[in-house]
């Protein structure tokens, strides 16, 4: 098993200009991942696949993650003049971190039987620049899974041979796994409408659907 630091060092020497960052993982699972920049992602992963010491020939799991815009509050000590005297005052700085979409690849080696090496690639934002290089030319197993990410998260994979919706129907417009997805306002009758369901029920139904009368027949029998 090669450590992520070693992989990073090897990949950065093999692919000049590649920026790789190790993302620590706080859970007891201890599976750190490698964040690779978009431009060099495919070359770096190709190196990981073909490098004789790694031979990550098996791309097991491909998935998308949606990270919304976040606000991080950091306390900064600022020197200001208060009543003609210079004082250090703690100020809360609110910083908006732009959100992004992320594709996560779990790579294993069937030849050397090690793994997982987790590769992450991030888009620039969540709205327009949602393009990532496709890894399907390297791993066929990514074909359907990248289509699924495109369908559910809206990441466009450049170089994918057949990027269409896969689970949702073709006319569907939104991407339902995004964290800010609002489901359409269609309502199914429930016999116990309460709280917010009741409010929606009132909008959609004026009368409860009448039964077909058959249960009164069975009750008499």
């Amino acid at each position: 098993m090669v450590s992520p630091e070693q992989i990073k060092a090897r990949a950065e020497t093999a692919v000049p200009g590649a920026k790789i960052e190790i993302i620590a993982n706080g859970s007891p699972a201890n599976q750190p991942s490698l964040l690779i920049d978009r431009e060099h992602a495919r070359t770096v992963v190709q190196f990981l696949r073909d490098d004789p010491a790694l031979q990550l020939d098996f791309c097991s799991n491909v998935t998308g993650v949606d990270w919304l815009d976040r606000t991080a509050t950091t306390k900064v000590k600022v020197k200001t003049l208060v009543d003609g005297e210079e004082k250090e005052i703690e100020q809360a700085q609110v910083e908006t971190l732009p959100g992004y979409l992320e594709a996560v690849y779990h790579l294993y080696s069937m030849a050397l039987k090690h793994g997982p090496v987790i590769v992450r690639i991030r888009t620039a934002d969540r709205a327009n620049a949602v393009h990532l290089p496709s890894l399907t030319p390297l791993y066929r197993s990514a074909e359907f899974q990248e289509r699924e990410i495109y369908d559910l998260y809206g990441i466009r994979f450049d170089g994918h041979p057949d990027l269409r919706r896969i689970l949702m129907w073709d006319e569907f417009v939104d991407h339902p796994m995004r964290k800010d997805y609002v489901p359409p306002d269609d309502f199914e009758y429930e016999p116990t409408p309460h709280d917010e369901v009741l409010a929606r029920a009132k909008e959609h139904y004026t009368v409860r659907p009448s039964s077909d009368g058959a249960e009164t027949l069975t009750a008499q029998a």
Partner: peptide, 8 residues
């Protein structure tokens, strides 16, 4: 706790 895991 916060973090991630892949189990198979």
């Amino acid at each position: 706790p916060a973090g991630e895991a892949y189990g198979r």
